[in-house]
C-alpha cells in the first residue's frame, strides 16, 4: 500500500442522489466512505442539469426540485461524515491484495476494500464541437478548460460561447493574451450580467474584439491552428487565431470506467439484482450506470440498489461479523449512528 494514499472502506464514484444515499445505507452498517465527483458540488445531474426542475416520483415527496433533493440527502447523510473529492475524475483502478487503489486526475490516491460506481450517465466532460478535424488540435491549439493562464500568454486567443465560462475567461485572459476575440452566436448572453457589461466595456475600448457568429471550419497544420472560418450575420469570413477555447457546456461520457476490465453492455455495467455487484468481485454499480433485466433509470431504483449493495459491502469489509437486519424506526443502535438517540 502506498504511503500517501487515503485509506477508507468504500470509494463511491459519483456524488449524485444515488451515490449520496449509498453513504446513508453504508453508514448504517458502519462502513466509511469517500466520494469522488468530477463536478464541483454534490447532486450530479440533479444539480447540474435541472436544479430548479420538479421531480414528482421520489416516494413521500409530492414534488421536489433537483437542488432540494440534493440538499435533503446531504442533510440526511451528515451523521456519517463521508469525505468528498470534488472536481476530480477517477482515472485508474488497480487491484490490490484485498482491495483497490484508485487514482484521480488530480493525483488523489484512495485505497479501499470496495468500489461503488454510481456515475449516472458517466462523467461530465466538456462538449466537443463537431468540427471536422478538431481532434488534431486538442491540447495544442484547442482547449476546453484553462489549467494555466500562462499557456495563453502572448497568443492570439479565440473564445467561443456565451455562458459564464466563456465570459469569465474572456475577462481573465484578456490581460495575458496578445489578442482576444470572443465569438458568440448572438449579442445576448446567459452569463452573469456584470461580466457581460465588463466584456462590452473592454470591447468598446478596443481591448478585446467581440464578434457575433459561429465557427464552421478550422484551418491549420500539425496540430497548430492558423485560422477558423466564422459564419456571421453578414457572411462568412476567415479569422486568424492560434488558440481556440470552445465553451459549449458539458455532456456525459462513460470515461475511464470503460478501461477497468468490467463487462459492459452499450456503455452500461451489468450487475446482479441481489447485490448489484459487477463482473468483478468488490466492485458494485448502482443507479443509472448499471443494467439488469427490467432496469428503470429512476432515482428510487438507485436508492433500492444502494440498500442491497450495502449489505454485501458490509460482508466484504467485516467478513466475520453477522449483519442483523434492523429498522431505523426501532433500532437503538441505528438511531445512535444517526445521532438521534
Amino acid at each position: 500500500m502506498s504511503e500517501n494514499a487515503i485509506k477508507t472502506d468504500v470509494v463511491i464514484i459519483g456524488a449524485g442522489p444515488v451515490g449520496l444515499f449509498a453513504v446513508f445505507e453504508l453508514g448504517l452498517v458502519d462502513v466509511k466512505c469517500h466520494l469522488v465527483d468530477i463536478l464541483d458540488r454534490p447532486g450530479g445531474q440533479c444539480t447540474e442539469l435541472y436544479p430548479e426542475k420538479p421531480i414528482y416520483d421520489v416516494p413521500g415527496l409530492t414534488v421536489v426540485t433537483g437542488q432540494e433533493l440534493t440538499d435533503r440527502l446531504m442533510d440526511q447523510i451528515k451523521p456519517f461524515g463521508a469525505e468528498f473529492h470534488f472536481n476530480q475524475r477517477v482515472d485508474s483502478l488497480e487491484r490490490l491484495d484485498g482491495g483497490f487503489r484508485l487514482t484521480t486526475d488530480a493525483d488523489t490516491v484512495l485505497e479501499c476494500k470496495v468500489v461503488v460506481i454510481a456515475a449516472g450517465g458517466g462523467s461530465f466532460t466538456p462538449k466537443r464541437p463537431p468540427l471536422p478535424g478538431i481532434e488534431q488540435y486538442e491540447g495544442t491549439s484547442v482547449f476546453y478548460s484553462v489549467r494555466k493562464m500562462e499557456n495563453f500568454k502572448d497568443r492570439d486567443v479565440l473564445i467561443v460561447g456565451g455562458g459564464d465560462s466563456a465570459l469569465d475567461w474572456t475577462l481573465n485572459l484578456q490581460p495575458v493574451a496578445k489578442s482576444l476575440t470572443l465569438l458568440h452566436r448572438r449579442p445576448e448572453f446567459r452569463a452573469a450580467p456584470a461580466s457581460v457589461q465588463k466584456m462590452y466595456d473592454l470591447a468598446e475600448k478596443g481591448d478585446i474584439d467581440f464578434k457575433v457568429g459561429q465557427v464552421t471550419e478550422l484551418h491549420g497544420e500539425n496540430g497548430q491552428l492558423r485560422a477558423v472560418t466564422i459564419k456571421g450575420a453578414d457572411g462568412t469570413f476567415e479569422h486568424p487565431t492560434e488558440v481556440m477555447l470552445p465553451f459549449f457546456g458539458l455532456t456525459m461520457k462513460l470515461g475511464p470506467v470503460a478501461d477497468w476490465g468490467l463487462n459492459l453492455e452499450e456503455n452500461l455495467i451489468p450487475v446482479d439484482t441481489a447485490k448489484f455487484e459487477t463482473s468483478e468481485q468488490g466492485i458494485f454499480a448502482i443507479g443509472d450506470i448499471n443494467t439488469y433485466p427490467g432496469k428503470l433509470k429512476l432515482i428510487l431504483s438507485g436508492f433500492h440498489e444502494a440498500a442491497l449493495m450495502a449489505q454485501q459491502a458490509h460482508h466484504y469489509i467485516y467478513p466475520d461479523k453477522k449483519l442483523i437486519f434492523q429498522y431505523t424506526t426501532s433500532s437503538t443502535s441505528l438511531q445512535k449512528k444517526l445521532g438521534v438517540k
Binding site: K127, P130, R185, R186, E188, R190, Q214, T216, F248, G249
Partner: peptide, 11 residues
C-alpha cells in the same frame, strides 16, 4: 430555450 440553444451546434 434561447439560452440553451447556445449549447447547440450550427444554430
Amino acid at each position: 430555450e434561447e439560452d440553451m440553444l447556445d449549447f447547440a451546434f450550427d444554430v
